[in-house]
Design a protein around this nucleic acid. Structure first.
Lengths: 111, 111
DNA sequence: TAATTACATTGCAATATTACGATTAATATT
DNA sequence: AATATTAATCGTAATATTGCAATGTAATTA
């Protein structure tokens, strides 16, 4: 149905899925990498960088902001974007915890 | 359009997005966690565990298999699923590298 | 062989996502 | 004030995803 039955899953699972969505589209990854490369707040020239329309970029930025992984501040007539340190670390930590759930089974593969 | 303009992005970005998609739905997360908890190959009682229909689970399993994060082997009349160690570590490593791109800017937040 | 069990596949319906042109709102410049 | 610039939002189209009932398939058992 294209709808997710969130009620079937735990709060943690749904929250993690929200975070996962960040990384499920190359445009959002490209945006984040651009912000990382600059290692500063960028006055949004993202439309030039990626080949997408302004409206499309704006939409991806909105999603990233709504999850909190980036922040945007008004800079006169333009916008300034950067990584939200706190949230970044929270998301990083969530993924780390997930990946660490797997104990390497020391070679005894069962299938 | 619901279509991703993959040609605008690098191979790495598209690959990473594919991996991100794994974690963008709570059902897939729940499936992976179930396999992790068992720490073994599980004879798919996933349909009982999650409240989703058999066909739906099967579809999620197919996606996870196609990316390679899980393996499935025929076990008589039933199936045995488990984590694909190698791919798991590859994905883990890819995410780690991504997260480590961010140097903590020691408090001088710019926005 | 017939019935059963365990999944995979198919075919559909509903919702979500991606993308963009056009418009709007808000500030800056002249 | 009039105009330009920047980016958010709206409306729309196209494609993707999620979900399930029904069906198909292959191995198991009676």
């Amino acid at each position: 149905m294209g709808i997710t039955k969130t009620d079937l899953f735990t709060q943690d699972q749904n929250t993690f899925a929200q975070m996962g969505k960040i990384f499920s589209h190359p445009a959002r990854i490209a945006i984040l990498q651009h912000l990382l490369d600059a290692n500063a707040c960028i006055n949004s020239d993202l439309v030039q960088e990626l080949g997408l329309a302004q409206a499309t970029i704006s939409q991806h930025l909105k999603e990233l902001k709504s999850i909190g992984i980036i922040k945007g501040t008004v800079e006169g007539v333009s916008m300034s974007y950067c990584i939200n340190e706190e949230k970044w670390l929270e998301i990083k930590s969530t993924f780390e915890q997930f990946f660490d759930q797997h104990q390497c089974c020391s070679g005894d593969s069962c299938c």
